[in-house]
């Protein structure tokens, strides 16, 4: 059972307080989008063995959504941050780089 820290209310809580919401930083495709773009938005998800950016909601707490950078292999949490952003903040990227030298976004 994971431990996460909600960046909105500051509470460090048990996984049962939170609700996982899948991959973070999706770009919404609406009317007018091509079938391919819409399919990618709706269904195609990263499934990395390693660093992953995820959406979480502090469901049994302040109720706010936030993002977490987490390693799917070791379950290490590199940081949590606001959901009101389109990309991970620099300090989270720095924390990842420190723990995973050579890692680049997208796993390439």
């Amino acid at each position: 059972m994971l431990i996460l820290t909600c960046p909105c209310c500051g509470v460090t809580g048990e996984e049962t307080e939170f609700h996982a919401g899948g991959q973070a930083h999706l770009q919404r495709s609406g009317p007018g989008a091509s079938d391919e773009a819409f399919e990618a938005y709706l269904f195609a998800r990263e499934n990395p063995r390693g660093v992953h950016f995820e959406r979480w909601r502090h469901a049994n707490g302040c109720g706010k959504w936030f993002h977490a950078a987490r390693c799917t292999l070791t379950l290490e949490v590199f940081g949590t941050y606001s959901a009101q952003t389109t990309q991970p903040p620099q300090e989270v990227l720095d924390a990842i780089a420190k723990r995973r030298p050579g890692w680049t976004e997208g796993g390439k």
Partner: peptide, 14 residues
């Protein structure tokens, strides 16, 4: 078989 101390379970803080 014995535990390999260099490959222990990792917590949230790494």
């Amino acid at each position: 078989f014995r535990p390999d101390p260099d490959r222990a379970p990792i917590s949230h803080d790494g």
